[in-house]
């Protein structure tokens, strides 16, 4: 599914990456702890989070995450936005809570980056 479609489904605002909405994603992971992102989110995934500090962007870069979906109406600081621009990581922001984001994307065919801990 293209980021463009995800933007529509989540009624999201493109914070970074207006020119990258043709990125194609099939899987996603949700975490509000960076250590958990590092442990469980796989490359190419969407990262759905409520974290807003620059480290979430650094983490997305380290993991080659396709895009960050920032939920529950949270806002990135200008510093975090700048880093996402520098590292070229698309960021979409939505007012939906994380549960709703996940449910809406799952219903449209996006799946978890892993199903269970320990599985591939």
């Amino acid at each position: 599914m293209y980021l463009r479609e995800i933007k529509e489904i989540l009624d999201a605002e493109v914070i970074v990456g207006q020119d990258r909405l043709d990125v194609d994603v099939t899987c996603a992971g949700v975490a509000d702890l960076i250590s958990d992102v590092l442990a469980y989110v796989t490359p190419g995934c969407l990262l759905i989070t409520g974290l807003t500090n620059p480290q979430v962007v650094r983490t997305a870069d380290v993991l080659d995450i396709s895009a960050i979906i920032l939920g529950r109406g949270k806002k990135f600081s200008s510093e975090t936005v700048r880093l996402a621009e520098e590292l070229n990581i698309p960021v979409l922001a939505t007012d939906y809570i994380l549960f709703e984001i996940v449910g809406r994307l799952y219903a449209k065919g996006i799946r978890g980056c892993i199903e269970k801990v320990g599985s591939k």
Binding site: I34, S35, A39, N53, Q55
Partner: peptide
């Protein structure tokens, strides 16, 4: 508060 400190760092490195 920054989202670290889940106690997974060293385990992640090892894995």
């Amino acid at each position: 508060e920054m989202g670290f400190g889940a106690g997974m760092g060293l385990c992640n490195i090892k894995s």
